[in-house]
C-alpha cells in the first residue's frame, strides 16, 4: 500500500508527520503537491474521479482493477482486496 497525502508540502513536518506518528503508519507516504496541474492528473488517475478525497485505487499486475471515491470501511477494503487477490 502506498499512501498519498494531498496536503501542502509545507505541512509535511507538521500535520502529515503528526498523522503518521499518531496512526503508527509504517507504509510509504508520499506528498502529491502538484497543485496547479490537478485538472490534468486527477483524470489521469481515474476518469471517474471528481477529485473528492479520500480516494483509493487498486492495481493488480500493474493494471488498475478498481477505483473508489469516498471513504471505505475496513470490511469494504478487505472485500475489495480479497476479490482481486490471485
Amino acid at each position: 500500500m502506498i499512501l498519498v497525502s494531498l496536503d501542502k508540502a509545507s505541512d509535511l513536518e507538521t500535520s502529515v508527520r503528526k498523522m503518521i506518528d499518531k496512526l503508527n503508519i509504517t507504509t510509504d507516504v508520499y506528498i502529491l503537491d502538484d497543485n496547479k496541474r490537478m485538472n490534468e492528473w486527477i483524470p489521469a488517475i481515474d476518469a471517474e474521479w471528481s477529485g473528492a478525497i479520500p480516494a483509493t485505487v487498486f492495481y493488480k499486475n500493474n493494471k488498475k482493477v478498481l477505483f473508489v471515491e469516498g471513504q471505505m470501511t475496513k470490511e469494504e477494503l478487505k472485500k475489495a482486496i480479497e476479490k482481486h487477490k490471485q
Binding site: 494531498l6 500535520s15 502529491l32 478525497i53 483509493t56 482486496i81
Partner: peptide, 10 residues
C-alpha cells in the same frame, strides 16, 4: 499482486 494507492489529506 495488489497495490493500493490511497489518496487523502490529514
Amino acid at each position: 499482486f495488489t497495490l493500493i494507492l490511497a489518496l487523502f489529506i490529514t
